[in-house]
């Protein structure tokens, strides 16, 4: 029986090597390491178990752990692609990669579709769209009449549901976004262009030089 001593520092559960994550995303190794510092900060904000729970995600977004928000819930669930109720580091980096300014538009369009496809049926249905508008009104304290809500939901469906079957599929969504590119503007985070410059407090000494890769 041998005795194994790891020289690696203790990492959070679900930790993945920055070299691997950098190879799979648009981030450099040092940027992944900077994201790890951010990840550790968020994941230890309430429960210090090294995993991002939904309350911690909400706290980071809203400075309020109890603020429920339909869209934050959807984004959390999509980041948590392993569906184990927490965002692991690899999920965090790969998902944020879609928000990189240089990430493909197709990935951004697909991600936005999944946010709006509330019940994961593969379609955005009229009732889901109405539900999202109502949730947003509740969030913003804006008051709109029932008639106005019906009008914008119907108008949107008239424009997007080209097949006229009462639901918007991914192809219809892609077409609709191509005509309304502002719909995915929140799918790009300029911060990610060079996170090590934007957030010098996150920069740590890289164990692997990017130039070595």
């Amino acid at each position: 029986m041998g005795c194994f001593h790891s020289k690696s520092p203790k990492h959070t559960p679900g930790y993945e090597e920055p070299v691997i994550l950098a190879a799979e995303t648009l981030f450099s190794v040092s940027e992944v390491e900077a994201l790890y510092e951010l990840y550790k900060k968020i994941s230890s904000s309430i429960t210090d178990d090294g995993l991002i729970h939904k309350e911690e995600f909400q706290l980071a977004l809203f400075r309020n752990r109890n603020k429920r928000n339909l869209f934050a819930d959807r984004v959390f669930d999509i980041f948590d692609y392993k569906r184990n109720g927490v965002i692991e580091f690899g999920e965090f980096v790969r998902s944020l990669g879609i928000f990189h300014p240089n990430a493909s538009v197709a990935d951004k369009v697909s991600f936005a579709f999944r946010v709006y496809d509330l019940r994961s049926t593969g379609f955005i249905e009229r009732e889901e769209l109405r539900e999202m508008v109502l949730a947003l009104l509740h969030e913003s304290d804006v008051v709109l009449s029932e008639e106005y809500i019906e009008m914008i939901v119907n108008k949107t469906f008239d424009d997007a549901d080209k097949k006229g079957d009462g639901k918007i599929d991914l192809d219809e969504w892609k077409e609709f976004v191509s005509q309304n590119p502002s719909l995915i503007k929140n799918m790009t985070l300029p911060y990610l262009k060079d996170i090590t410059l934007a957030f010098p407090s996150f920069v740590v000494r890289s164990e692997v030089e990017d130039s070595d890769l």
């Binding site: 951010l38 900060k41 928000n69 339909l70 999202m132 508008v133 947003l136 503007k185 985070l189 934007a198």
Partner: peptide, 25 residues
């Protein structure tokens, strides 16, 4: 006024604006 429900949502929902994650730093 908005005539596009998705534009209304994407423009106004703070839950779909992840830039705040970085303010944590």
């Amino acid at each position: 006024p908005f005539y596009n429900a998705f534009e209304f949502i994407s423009s106004m929902s703070s839950g779909f604006d992840l830039s705040n994650l970085f303010e944590s730093g």
